Amino acid sequence: MAGARLVAAEGEITGLVGPNGSGKSTLLRTVYRHLKPTAGRVLLDGRDLREVSPVQSARHVAALPQERGSDFELTVREVVAMGRTPYKRAFAGEDATDRDLVAGALSGVGMEGHAGRRFTALSGGERQRVLLARAFAQDPDVLVLDEPTNHLDIRHQVELLTLLRAQRRTTLVSLHDLNAAASVCDRLHVLHGGAVVASGRPRDVLTTELMAQVFGVRAVVVDHPLTGDPLIAFDHRDPAGAEAAVVSGTGRGSHSAPGHGSEG
């Protein structure tokens, strides 16, 4: 992707949404250093992350990527405790801070009763929650989450999104579920064809016109009857109706205030 610029403001949840292949995962991989940008920079509080050692970077940024290891021959607690690795010297044991953070992370994802189970014996949703707990135990300044609700049932999806909001930690998250994104995110960046085509508050960005132009579906945006958040109602009977829609504009909003940023 080229020419993409986005900002994740401190303490906010910033969402990336867009069709498959739009560049969401690629952009996130540059933030947690799985990929090196061919141009541009990833800045954390104004400092280029490439100027920071991998260990120091891991103290600031924790990631839950889509391609996740599933062959850990470890217990649930041992997997979560791996999040404390950036803070430990070689062969150093756990201290009280480590134990408290690991316990809190397990409790936060509802897995405190499974600490002694083998990771390989867990369901896909349970593994997802354990790996999220590992990221929480890392106690980062920035969380980078690539489709964190994958493999979770409805209840655990809702609980996860509630947990993210309660943390108030700077979070950069990609989501396929636009209604989830509208509910949990303070700001959205819409990607299409490798470019950021709209940025702003969910209510300003997720418009009928954008649904047609970017996602190719017919939809209306209404207020959620329970929360008041934007709720996107899709036309499942005639989804291709959007192709014939005559629309103008993309519902673009303004960029957020300076914070943690990526540009490329």
Rank of each mutant, 00 (worst) to 15 (best):
residue 59 R to W: 03
residue 60 H to W: 10
residue 60 H to N: 07
residue 61 V to Y: 08
residue 63 A to I: 08
residue 63 A to G: 13
residue 65 P to V: 03
residue 66 Q to M: 07
residue 68 R to N: 13
residue 68 R to G: 05
residue 68 R to V: 14
residue 69 G to Q: 12
residue 69 G to C: 03
residue 70 S to Y: 08
residue 70 S to R: 14
residue 72 F to S: 04
residue 72 F to C: 02
residue 73 E to M: 01
residue 73 E to Q: 01
residue 74 L to P: 08
residue 74 L to D: 09
residue 74 L to R: 02
residue 75 T to Q: 02
residue 78 E to N: 01
residue 79 V to I: 12
residue 81 A to M: 01
residue 81 A to F: 01
residue 83 G to M: 01
residue 83 G to I: 11
residue 85 T to E: 08
residue 85 T to G: 01
residue 86 P to C: 13
residue 86 P to I: 11
residue 87 Y to E: 10
residue 88 K to R: 09
residue 88 K to D: 04
residue 88 K to I: 09
residue 88 K to W: 02
residue 89 R to Y: 01
residue 90 A to R: 02
residue 91 F to D: 08
residue 91 F to Y: 06
residue 92 A to Y: 00
residue 92 A to V: 09
residue 93 G to R: 07
residue 93 G to W: 00
residue 94 E to L: 15
residue 95 D to K: 01
residue 95 D to E: 00
residue 96 A to V: 08
residue 98 D to I: 04
residue 99 R to V: 14
residue 100 D to L: 12
residue 101 L to W: 06
residue 102 V to S: 07
residue 103 A to D: 15
residue 107 S to C: 03
residue 107 S to R: 15
residue 107 S to N: 08
residue 108 G to V: 01
residue 109 V to G: 11
residue 110 G to F: 01
residue 110 G to H: 03
residue 112 E to I: 15
residue 112 E to Y: 11
residue 113 G to I: 13
residue 115 A to D: 10
residue 115 A to T: 12
residue 115 A to K: 02
residue 117 R to K: 10
residue 117 R to E: 08
residue 118 R to W: 03
residue 118 R to A: 09
residue 119 F to M: 04
residue 121 A to C: 08
residue 122 L to N: 06
residue 125 G to K: 00
residue 128 Q to L: 07
residue 130 V to K: 05
residue 131 L to C: 11
residue 132 L to I: 15
residue 132 L to C: 05
residue 134 R to F: 06
residue 136 F to R: 09
residue 136 F to Y: 11
residue 137 A to Q: 07
residue 137 A to R: 08
residue 138 Q to V: 07
residue 140 P to A: 04
residue 140 P to C: 13
residue 142 V to I: 15
residue 146 D to W: 00
residue 150 N to R: 04
residue 151 H to W: 01
residue 151 H to Y: 10
residue 151 H to D: 13
residue 152 L to H: 00
residue 152 L to I: 06
residue 152 L to G: 07
residue 153 D to Q: 00
residue 154 I to M: 13
residue 155 R to M: 01
residue 156 H to W: 04
residue 156 H to T: 02
residue 157 Q to D: 09
residue 157 Q to C: 01
residue 158 V to C: 09
residue 158 V to W: 03
residue 159 E to F: 00
residue 160 L to V: 09
residue 160 L to N: 11
residue 162 T to K: 11
residue 162 T to Q: 14
residue 163 L to D: 04
residue 163 L to Q: 11
residue 164 L to R: 12
residue 164 L to G: 14
residue 164 L to N: 15
residue 165 R to C: 10
residue 167 Q to N: 14
residue 171 T to N: 01
residue 172 L to P: 13
residue 173 V to D: 09
residue 174 S to V: 14
residue 174 S to A: 15
